[in-house]
Each structure stands twice: as C-alpha cells, then as structure tokens.
C-alpha cells in the first residue's frame, strides 16, 4: 500500500505525460458516498416523537417536527460516476432502505486521485 501511494504521489508531482492517472496506475477511480435514509412522511416515527418530547423537557421549545433517519457513509471504486451511482442505487433500493417505509437520497463525490 505504501508503495502504491508513493507512486501515486510521484506521478502527480512529476509526471505530466500521464494524463489519466488511474489508467497509468491500473486503478479505478474512488468515490465517497453518503446515503441518507429517511422515513416516508406518511410513516409513524414513534422514536422521533419521543425524542421531540424529550427536547421540550430539556427546554428546547418550538420543535414542530423531528424525524429520525439513518446516514450511511461509503467508499467505493468504480469505472465511472455513472457506474458508482448505479451500484449505489441498487444497494439503497434493495438493502439500505425499505421502499415500503423509507426514502433515500445519495450524495456522490469522486475522491481526488
């Protein structure tokens, strides 16, 4: 791993002839993704309601809505942003969220090579 990183750094600093760094190194682009899973608006959220009640006991008043979801952070390698998005959409639809009760959204960012 250390060796790869060194090559990588050297290539950035000293090898302008290698335009696509990942191709030069035989590595796929890396992406970082954040998936937000939220309950659908029509679904009861008793945990959110209980938390809202606790907030007022803390003295934080005026909370009209508190809905609890999940955040999932992922890193993956994929040929392109489109491929990464496709893979992650499958993951969200089939595993991370249950479409019966939950919606999801995805933020995707390519990590600098």
């Amino acid at each position: 791993m250390g060796l790869i990183f060194t090559m990588h750094s050297n290539a950035v600093d000293g090898s302008p002839s290698c335009e696509d760094l990942n191709t030069c190194l035989g590595r796929l682009p890396r992406f970082i993704a954040r998936v937000q899973v939220q309950l659908r608006p029509s679904v009861l959220d008793p945990a959110g309601e209980a938390t809202r009640a606790a907030a007022s006991r803390l003295g934080v008043n005026g909370l009209q809505k508190l809905r609890i979801g999940k955040a999932v952070e992922l890193e993956l390698e994929a040929e392109s942003a489109a491929t990464a998005r496709q893979q992650l959409s499958l993951l969200c639809d089939r595993l991370l969220a249950n479409p019966v009760t939950e919606n999801w959204s995805l933020e995707l960012e390519e990590l600098a090579p």
Binding site: V43, L44, P46, A47, N98, V100, T101
Partner: peptide, 17 residues
C-alpha cells in the same frame, strides 16, 4: 417474509416504543 417480498408491507417500531 415482508423484507423478502413474499408478503407486502413492513413491520416497524411499536407505537409506544
């Protein structure tokens, strides 16, 4: 069974937690 899709819907936290 609901997660598998053999039955529709979902089972969630009890109303009173």
């Amino acid at each position: 069974l609901t997660e598998m899709g053999l039955l529709p819907g979902a089972l969630t936290r009890n109303r009173d937690l």
